[in-house]
């Protein structure tokens, strides 16, 4: 399972977590990632608007390009998880679910974490790395 990187956006579209696990995407500055997150938040909103099917209510879920494939999971509370993986990587759904579970455990149950703020939970990162990139 090769995951290239993970981004988490809060309700307002601000970037609260970003981490690269494998090579494949270019390294950008933190400012670039912030801008990217904001742009994506807007694009996601528009994609549900231009839907040709009435009352669809869903935003962008999968984005494909030549070199990577991005899956966006939006929770019921508006938090978005963006997973970047290789184009022919199967079972990204499983990965997304597991990452969400880790988020619900180690971020939400942490009394020192402020909601919607950047994630600085050591247990979350430790478990994430252990799951995505076990050595």
């Amino acid at each position: 399972m090769v995951i290239l990187s993970l981004l988490i956006l809060n309700k307002a579209g601000g970037l609260i977590f970003q981490r690269d696990f494998n090579e494949g995407l270019k390294k950008l500055s933190s400012n670039d990632y912030l801008v990217l997150a904001g742009t994506f938040h807007g694009v996601h909103a528009i994609t549900s608007r231009i839907s040709p099917v009435r009352n669809s209510g869903g935003g962008l879920e999968v984005l494909e390009s030549d070199r990577f494939r991005m899956q966006c999971f939006q929770t019921l509370t508006g938090t978005k998880f963006l997973i970047f993986a290789e184009p022919n990587q199967p079972n990204i759904d499983v990965v997304v679910k597991r990452v969400y579970e880790l988020y619900a455990d180690y971020v939400m149950k942490n009394p020192f974490y402020q909601i919607e703020m950047p994630i600085r939970c050591e247990a979350f990162e430790r478990n994430l790395v252990a799951y995505i990139k076990p050595k």
Partner: peptide, 8 residues
């Protein structure tokens, strides 16, 4: 589930 921040 608790991760104590570095300053504490």
């Amino acid at each position: 589930y608790i991760s104590v921040p570095k300053e504490m």
